[in-house]
């Protein structure tokens, strides 16, 4: 398995602003861990991807009736907001 990775790119995908020191130390840690998990590459596997169940007990998804249940009040929903205005959560500008 290939262990090259671009720590900056991964951090960007994970939306974590890493300092230079963190980049170095985490890079190093990740290399060591990936080295270890490479043991998997030697494994001869029988299971096919499409046979894989998400649930370890192979439970099937149950669908729920389309009936409204009351949940949080507006105040409860917004009570933890770092910033809010006129009932909306407010964040710095997001642009596309």
């Amino acid at each position: 398995m290939s262990n090259e990775f671009n720590i900056k790119n991964i951090a960007k995908l994970a939306s974590i602003n890493l300092s230079k020191e963190e980049q170095d130390s985490l890079s190093n840690d990740l290399s060591i861990i990936l080295e270890h998990v490479n043991a998997l590459s030697d494994l001869k596997l029988h299971a096919q991807q499409q046979e894989i169940f998400i649930h370890p007990l192979e439970k099937e998804l149950e669908l729920q009736e389309d009936e409204v249940k009351k949940s949080l009040t507006h105040d409860e929903a917004i009570s933890n907001a770092p910033e809010s205005k006129d009932g909306k959560f407010v964040v710095p500008p997001s642009m596309e």
Partner: peptide, 30 residues
């Protein structure tokens, strides 16, 4: 199972699941 609403009043049909509170889980609509 929050109601689908058609309103300008913001953030009135919410639960832990649809605002992604820690510990909330999805259950699908039949």
């Amino acid at each position: 199972r929050c109601a689908v609403v058609d309103t300008d009043e913001p953030n009135i049909s919410l639960c832990p699941t649809c605002i992604g509170l820690p510990g909330a889980l999805p259950v699908p609509n039949k």
